[in-house]
Each structure stands twice: as structure tokens, then as C-alpha cells.
Computed example of a mutant assay.
Amino acid sequence: MIQLFSDWSDWLPQLWSGYLVSLQVAAISLVIGIPLGLAFAVAVGVKDKKIRIPAMVLVEMGRGGPILILLQFLYFGLPNIHLTLSTLTASVFALAWSTGAYTSEIIKAGLNAVPNGQREAAKTLGLNTIDTFRIIIIPQGLRIALPPLLGFSLIILQCTSLCFTIALPELVSAANDIGSETFQYMSVLTLTGLLYAAVCIPATIFTGRFERHLSRHEAH
């Protein structure tokens, strides 16, 4: 047991460096992907086919294509058309695309959950459709969608582990490097899992409590 903790203390700096990369990629992907999800949610609901159909195609590709395939396509596939992305850029684009595709449904459900009375009240006040959507519907819809968006954010953090397949130096890649040097895969992967859990478990508890708090507030 003493030897195990000694190994962990030796490995932790390298793993922590990879973990910071994972957190960075997840954060950037969410910052890009969630607004993209809002744009998709709005675009698939418009009447203009020139906007709706491309948005639907992008959403279905993002949802239907596994993140691993999106990563491989952006990193290995685009060079065939003379467009080369770095591992970081390809990782962010793939995860942001998937985030936008999946969160579009979450955000769309939140927008649809806003009571019709809010729209009627806005119309009574003389607000046009765009202002009603921007001032009334979007803020309330995003508030409703916030708990599932927080839960999805944890999934994206975990999905950064797939980026090791394109040589991004994230947490799992660092763990794999240590394992290949020491052949102590079980020990290093256990520590890797604990690092993920150190963020995901508290965040899951917070998300659940936050959702219950919002539910009580809405009930009143």
C-alpha cells in the first residue's frame, strides 16, 4: 500500500498536467457548443428551409456520429482536402459539434417549456417576435434547461478521454504513457478514475441539489 501511494505521488504531476488539458478542452468545447446548441434549437424551428435543413443535417450528424468518429474525421480526414487541424483544435471542434447537436434538444425543450402566457403578455406589452424571444423566452428557457446542461457538461469532460486517440496530451493519454513505461496500468488507471471522480461526483451532487432548488422555486 505504501508503494502504491508512493507511485501515485510520482505520477500525479504528469497526470495533473494532462487533466488540465482535459479541463481546458471541455471548457472551450462547452463555451462554443452551448451557444451553438441554442442556434441549432432556433434554426430547426424556423420556416425557411434554407436555414432549417442545413441546421437539421448538422444536428443529426453531430448526434448520429460518435464523438470518436468526429475526432477521426476532423483530424485524419480533413488533411485529404488539404485542411490540417492541430490535435487541440480538432478535439475542440469535435466536442463542440457534438455538444451543439445534443444541447440543441435540451435547449429546445427548455424554450418550449416556457408558458404561453409569457408570450401573450409580451404581445400585450407591444414586443415584437424577436424581442419576445430575446428578452422573455430565451432567458427563461435557458434557466429551465440549466440543470440538464450542467449534467451534459460532465459527460463532455469524460468524453475528452477519447481525444487520446488523436494524440492529444490529456489525462488518459498521460495515464497511457505512464502505463506503457511502468506496466502498472491498473494502478495508474485507478488514480486516473479518481481524478475524474473528484470533479464529477461533487458536480453531480451540486447539479441534483440545484435542480431541486429550481423545482421548489418554480412550484411557488
Rank of each mutant, 00 (worst) to 15 (best):
residue 3 Q to H: 14
residue 4 L to F: 10
residue 8 W to F: 08
residue 8 W to L: 09
residue 9 S to W: 00
residue 11 W to H: 01
residue 17 S to M: 10
residue 18 G to W: 00
residue 20 L to I: 06
residue 21 V to D: 05
residue 21 V to L: 07
residue 22 S to P: 02
residue 24 Q to A: 13
residue 28 I to G: 02
residue 29 S to E: 03
residue 34 I to A: 05
residue 35 P to R: 01
residue 39 A to Y: 07
residue 41 A to Y: 00
residue 42 V to C: 11
residue 47 K to Q: 15
residue 49 K to V: 14
residue 50 K to M: 13
residue 50 K to V: 14
residue 54 P to S: 10
residue 56 M to N: 14
residue 56 M to V: 11
residue 56 M to E: 14
residue 56 M to W: 10
residue 60 E to G: 10
residue 63 R to L: 11
residue 68 L to M: 13
residue 68 L to S: 08
residue 69 I to E: 10
residue 73 F to M: 11
residue 77 G to P: 06
residue 78 L to Y: 09
residue 81 I to Y: 08
residue 82 H to P: 13
residue 82 H to D: 15
residue 83 L to G: 14
residue 84 T to G: 13
residue 85 L to G: 14
residue 86 S to K: 03
residue 91 S to C: 03
residue 93 F to Q: 08
residue 93 F to W: 11
residue 101 A to W: 01
residue 102 Y to E: 11
residue 102 Y to A: 11
residue 106 I to C: 04
residue 107 I to W: 05
residue 109 A to L: 02
residue 121 A to V: 04
residue 128 N to V: 03
residue 131 D to Y: 11
residue 132 T to F: 05
residue 135 I to E: 11
residue 135 I to A: 14
residue 137 I to C: 06
residue 142 L to C: 09
residue 142 L to G: 07
residue 143 R to S: 14
residue 143 R to Q: 13
residue 149 L to C: 08
residue 153 S to H: 04
residue 156 I to H: 02
residue 157 L to E: 04
residue 159 C to K: 10
residue 160 T to P: 03
residue 161 S to V: 02
residue 162 L to V: 01
residue 163 C to R: 02
residue 164 F to C: 12
residue 166 I to E: 12
residue 172 V to C: 04
residue 174 A to P: 02
residue 176 N to T: 09
residue 178 I to C: 07
residue 180 S to G: 10
residue 184 Q to H: 13
residue 186 M to D: 13
residue 186 M to I: 15
residue 188 V to I: 07
residue 191 L to N: 00
residue 192 T to W: 00
residue 196 Y to I: 09
residue 210 F to N: 12
residue 211 E to M: 11
residue 215 S to H: 13
